[in-house]
Every structure is written in structure tokens, then in C-alpha cells.
Design a protein around this nucleic acid. Structure first.
Length: 291
DNA sequence: CACTTGACCTGTCCGC
DNA sequence: TGCGGACAGGTCAAGT
């Protein structure tokens, strides 16, 4: 379930493989998730790949951009014509590309050269989207327009301060877990890191956000940053369908604190991890550690 | 305005 | 073995 660490890992993979190249053609197989005119970016040099929250932006020299959101099951996979990559069979739905869940194919070339590589967009559940828009209009897209600040993850651009996070928590009576997953309040936190961050902060996800004491809010701020940094360090969590641009797996799923661990022992006190529903989402907690 | 619920999808898993 | 149903969760739209 791509959240900030997973999407940042995808961004790095795209940056590594795309910058300096150009797209010679785009095949749109499933039109519903694609909008905009491919002609606006064909034969234009790719100059950078940015990320805002869980959204990706590929910028072209002619001030056009491809904007994408992979939601839960979207995958960008880069395949060099000269090199066989080792796709994880389960996570990639078969080793061959394109396959029945491939919805967009970008043919790539180096500047002034023939096609040499392909970027596939796969998405089992088709919730993701790809748009082509002028770069100056990216910030005005509904998703980016209402996006909150990001936490200050080491090496990234997030600027949210402790004071700002305290103000956000204090402003709502929502369950604290639902609030920290609201992209308009804090960008980048999804279900995995919300669960693990709350466990690390020893806070019950059902607590009203504005009931947190200053000291608890401080622990949560620090803990969310810590789990996001750990997730990024491990290249994300390949729990279901997340896969890296070069076909490899992330490793954070081997380090989950509570997420997906219902029925297993708490890593701290050995109580049994419970699964409940908060804000309509599966939620994992240690009933002993989290108050 | 604050918050909740349902829709969008398909693969997987569980119980019968 | 097959089959129905619940479940997975990011975001948006509609409803309370």
C-alpha cells in the first residue's frame, strides 16, 4: 500500500531511469485512468521527477508534466531492452510484461536515439491515475491543491514542525488515527505507518485527536517520523502489490511493529495484537502498550 | 462545516 | 472442489 516511503522509493527509481531520456510513444490500453494529450510530452526531454505526498510528477523540458497516483496497486516498472529484470512473480502478477493488468506503456529513448526501454504502468484494481498537464497547472490539481504539509523526513523536503502537528491534533475530535491519515492535514501517512507510528508512540488509535496531551503529541510526531524514515530506509513495504521501479521488493514488511500482526505477540510486552476498525479502516494495536 | 459512508476495482482468503 | 462473501485501502463524492 504505497505511502510516503513507497512512493518516494518509486520516485527515486523513476528519476534514476527517466531523467535525460524522452518518450517516443505512449500506448494507452485502459483509457479510464489516463487523461491529457500524449503529444504534449512525446519527444520532449525528461528533466526531473518530483513527489508531493503520495503523488508523483514527471517534468519535461517544455514545461509539461505527467502526474500520477498509484493508489493501492499501481506499479511503474522500467525494463531496459538489453537487460532482463527479475520481477517478483507474486507481486508483479507474472514475470512477463505487458500482462492483463498493464494499462499504459511508455516507450523510451535516449535523446536522439531509437527506443531502448519501456516503462509499464500496471494496476490490478485500476484505482490509480495518470494525467498530462502543463507543469504550472500541477499545483492546482485537486489532489495537490488540498495536500497538507509533510513531516520532516531525513533527506526529504517535509517542513511540518512539532508546533504545527500539535495544532492539527488539537483541531479535531476525530480518532487520532483517522486524522493523521488525512492527506489534507498531514501528507504521506497511510494505514501501515499510522498503525506503527501510533504503536511506537504508545497511543490508542481510537483516542480523540484533541485529547492528546502535549507530551503524547510530541511522542506521536517523533514516532511517525521514525517509522516513515525506517520504511524509506527499507525501500518501502511490499505487503501486497507494491514493487519498485526495477522490479525489486521493499523490505519494511519484515519490520512491521503491529500492522498486519493481529493474533501475534506484541514485540514489547508479548500481549496479543488486536485488529479493530477505526474510521472504516483495519487498525492494529497492542491493548496493553497503547493507551 | 465536521464527519461518515459508499464507490471505485480485482485478487485472495475463509467458511460451507 | 466450487462458490459466495468479506476484506484489502487511497481518494473522491455523496450523505447525515
Amino acid at each position: 500500500m504505497p505511502e510516503l516511503p513507497e512512493v518516494e522509493t518509486i520516485r527515486r527509481g523513476l528519476e534514476k531511469h527517466l531523467v535525460g531520456k524522452r518518450i517516443s510513444s505512449i500506448e494507452v490500453i485502459f483509457a479510464k485512468l489516463f487523461s491529457g494529450d500524449p503529444a504534449q510530452v512525446v519527444d520532449q526531454e525528461i528533466i526531473g521527477v518530483r513527489r508531493f505526498g503520495k503523488g508523483l510528477v514527471i517534468d519535461f523540458a517544455n514545461e509539461q508534466s505527467i502526474v500520477a497516483h498509484v493508489k493501492m496497486t499501481g506499479q511503474f516498472i522500467y525494463m531496459d531492452k538489453s537487460e532482463k529484470i527479475n520481477l517478483h512473480p507474486k507481486l508483479s502478477i507474472g514475470a512477463d510484461l505487458p500482462h492483463k493488468h498493464t494499462h499504459v506503456v511508455f516507450h523510451l529513448s535516449a535523446i536522439g536515439h531509437k527506443p531502448l526501454a519501456t516503462l509499464y504502468y500496471n494496476d490490478i484494481r485500476k484505482f490509480g491515475w495518470i494525467k498530462i498537464v502543463p507543469t504550472k497547472e500541477v499545483a492546482g490539481l485537486s489532489f495537490f491543491k488540498s495536500l497538507g504539509k509533510e513531516l520532516p523526513i531525513k533527506g526529504l523536503l517535509g517542513t511540518m514542525t512539532l508546533q504545527e502537528s500539535e495544532a492539527i491534533l488539537g483541531s479535531s475530535s476525530l480518532p487520532v488515527k483517522a486524522l493523521i491519515m488525512d492527506q489534507q492535514k498531514i501528507a504521506g501517512v497511510g494505514n501501515i505507518y499510522a498503525n506503527d507510528g501510533l504503536f511506537l508512540a504508545r497511543i490508542d488509535p481510537r483516542r480523540k485527536a484533541n485529547s492528546l496531551k502535549k507530551e503524547e503529541a510530541g511522542r506521536l510526531y517523533k514516532s511517525l517520523i521514525e517509522v516513515l524514515e525506517k520504511g524509506l530506509l527499507h525501500g518501502g513495504a511490499s505487503d501486497v502489490n507494491y514493487i519498485q521501479v526495477d522490479g525489486g521488493k521493499g523490505e519494511y514488511q519484515d519490520h512491521f511493529l503491529v500492522y498486519g500482526r493481529s493474533g501475534e505477540e506484541c514485540l514489547v510486552c508479548k500481549s496479543t495484537i488486536e485488529r479493530i476498525v477505526v474510521g472504516g479502516r483495519g487498525t492494529f494495536l497492542c491493548p496493553t502498550c497503547q493507551k
